[in-house]
Structures are given as structure tokens and as C-alpha cells.
Write a protein that binds this DNA or RNA. Structure first.
Lengths: 197, 197
DNA sequence: TTGAAAGTATGATGGCTATAATATTATATG
DNA sequence: CATATAATATTATAGCCATCATACTTTCAA
């Protein structure tokens, strides 16, 4: 081969990285082939040497969003004490930083509303992401000795996703902060994560 | 005037009704002028006799979504006992029926993710909707004698929106039902709405 | 019944986008 | 250094969409 064996693979990854960001910024339907390629420093012509169609590309980009993302964060601390792991995760998830990072962060809130309109493959990937994150939260809750860990985890994830999404939608900074703060405080109280507990 | 004085106004309303449905089904950015007009039994040409531009139209349609919608439901029962009002609202909000009515229902979950990409006017309208609904929930909670009603209401709304959105995204019917059921049960327990309480 | 104006339809234009065929550039090997 | 070929760029095509100019249709007042 004439180019480095890794060359195409790296380019492909770069394009997918950009797509993952564009999807977060613009949504999976406003993404344009030319725009993504330009962001990766390429022109749109080469696109079809990497991907068979835009739809397949979007599906792959969505799968890509789930690799690595901040869900991995909870896994990394799998060995850590569950109380610290959960507290840290909630604090991160409902932080101003996570809210404001409009091209990074957990894929769940970004894709939630559009999920029903995505390809079957993407919907299933999304569902796996939900199940995975719910499972991790449940495992930590069970380690804390809580009953009905799976139920609690599901409802906790709902509040995490809902609060982050509503905070992103709120144009007033103070009100947006308040949405995050209120859910942060509530979740920690609810899950018995407070220091004095 | 040659046509009935109400004629244009009624047509305009019909178009806005359709737009509100299309936005729920397809999202505010995939809406097309011709498609909406066709759904209203018209052709695309007359559109600009009713609305100055697509963007203004979308803004107006979004405002229209907030008039009427199921938020009004909570207001109607304003005089009802707060326990029944809140229980009924939670049961409706997290029902399979609400989840499955993809062209009706509360505007908040539909627009949540797209809100940051909407016009300033729409974002403000959205924020008003959030504040309004939070306020109503808080009023009922306060009537139940709960402290920190506003905080509780905010975090409750986050879970309502998050759970409905995640349930809509979940392709597996049983899992989707479970998401609704878990948040329904949790919220009622949390807010002290259970029968034996 | 008829004219006029309000309301709606037809058809055109230009911009954008996905796709694809062809041309060009870059580089690893002989 | 030459060349083959992988990778990317140029350019073309076709379809969709917002917008708009113009033509037509409806229906009330005279």
C-alpha cells in the first residue's frame, strides 16, 4: 500500500469524531456530509470512500458517541466506594460544565428526543446505552445496600437526563443553575449519599 | 370583505394546529412548509399570505403548542384537592397513552433538546412553559404542606420529562413500560401521594 | 347577477444537499 | 527516482425546500 496502513483508519475516526460533535451541536438530522468533512479538513467527495451512505454514517457516528463518553467514567471508578462513585457522577452529570459542553458529554440527553426517529440500529444502540448506565447505577446502589436498586436507578437516570436537558433549554443562567442544583441536592438526599448519612 | 371574516383566521389556526403536530412528530427543524400546508388541505403557495417566513411560523407554532396542551389540565383541577390533582397529573404524564400520542401531549419533552437551537422568542416561550408548570406543581405541593415546594417541583418536573423522553426512546415495549412505572411509583412515594399516607 | 377583493393555487427560481463519476495528489515500494 | 495505487479533491447531477410572482377561484355587497 502507498499510504500508511493506518492513514485511512485514522481519517475515518477523525470524521466520526467530528460527526459525534456535530450531532451533539446540531442534532442527528441537521448534520450535513459536506460540513462534517470540512470540519475534518477534507472535502465532501471522499466521503463515500469511507461510508456507504449518510444514514449508515449517522448510525455509526451514534454508536461512536457511546464509546468512550462519560458513561465510561462510572466504569472507571467501578472499584471505588459506591458512595463516592455515585456522588461524583451526579456532581459531574448535573454540573454547569457538563451542561455547557455542547459538543461533548453524555449522548443520552442529546439523542433522547430524536431516538424514535432514528434507524433501528441506532435506537437499539441507544437502548443499550440506557440499559448499561441504569445497570451501573443499580450496581452501585445495591452495593450501598439499597433495596429495589434497579427501580431506583431507572428513576434516577430519568431525573439526571431530564434535569440536564431542561437546564440546557433554559436561557436564563441563574434559573438553569437552579435546575441543576435542585436535582443534584434531591438525588443525593434521595439516594442517601449525604455526608452525615 | 368577500370571504367570511373568520375564514382566514380559521385557516391560519388549522395550519398552526398541523404545524404543532408535525413539530411533535418530526421536530421543529424537519418541518417543511409544503408538508404542513398539504396536511391542512392547502398548497404551499398560500403560505406567505399567512406567515412572513418559515422561522416566524415555527416560532408561532411553538407558542401555539403551549396554548391548550395538557399543562392546562393541571390548571383545570386547580380547585381540586392537591393530592388528587398531582396524582392524576403524574398518572397521565407517565402513562402509555401520553407516551404513545406522538402528535399530542406536553410540549416540553418534544422541544427540550432542540430548545437551545430555536429562536430567542421560542426559547423564552419554552422557559415560560417550564416556569409555569413548575409553579403549578409547587403550588399543589405547598397546599399539601410540603416544605421547599419550589425545589421539589423543579426536580419532579425533571423526572417527569426525563422518564417520558426515555420511555419514548426505548423500542422494547416492556422496558418502556417499566421506565414509566418506576418513575410513577417513585414520584408518588416521594411526594407522599400514596393512598395510605 | 356581477364585479371586486380576499384567499388560494400554479409554477418558477435559487440555494442547499446527498450521491456519484472522474480527476488529481500523495507516498510506499521497487 | 519512477511508478502504481490508495486516498482525497473536483465537478456534475438530481432532488428537495423556502420563497415569491402571478394566475385563478371563491363569495359577499351592490
Amino acid at each position: 500500500m502507498r499510504y500508511d496502513a493506518e492513514h485511512k483508519r485514522k481519517t475515518r475516526l477523525r470524521v466520526l469524531d467530528e460527526a459525534a460533535m456535530v450531532i451533539r451541536e446540531e442534532g442527528p438530522h441537521r448534520l450535513g456530509v459536506a460540513g462534517v468533512m470540512a470540519r475534518a479538513g477534507l472535502t465532501h467527495g471522499g466521503f463515500y470512500a469511507h461510508f456507504p451512505s449518510k444514514e449508515a454514517f449517522v448510525s455509526e457516528a451514534i454508536a461512536h458517541m457511546f464509546e468512550g463518553g462519560p458513561t465510561a467514567m462510572l466504569e472507571k471508578v467501578k472499584g471505588a466506594p459506591p458512595r463516592e462513585a455515585l456522588t461524583g457522577y451526579i456532581d459531574f452529570y448535573l454540573s454547569a460544565r457538563h451542561r455547557d459542553s455542547r459538543s461533548g458529554g453524555c449522548p443520552l440527553p442529546y439523542l433522547a428526543v430524536d431516538a424514535p426517529r432514528l434507524s433501528q440500529a441506532s435506537r437499539e444502540r441507544y437502548a443499550r446505552g440506557v440499559a448499561h448506565l441504569t445497570g451501573i447505577i443499580a450496581t452501585h446502589l445495591a452495593a450501598l445496600g439499597r433495596d429495589h436498586a434497579e427501580d431506583e436507578a431507572s428513576s434516577t437516570l430519568a431525573e439526571l437526563v431530564g434535569a440536564l436537558t431542561l437546564a440546557r433549554a433554559e436561557p436564563d443562567a441563574d434559573r438553569s443553575d437552579a435546575i441543576l442544583e435542585r436535582s443534584r441536592a434531591h438525588l443525593k438526599r434521595r439516594l442517601g449519599l449525604e455526608a452525615d448519612q
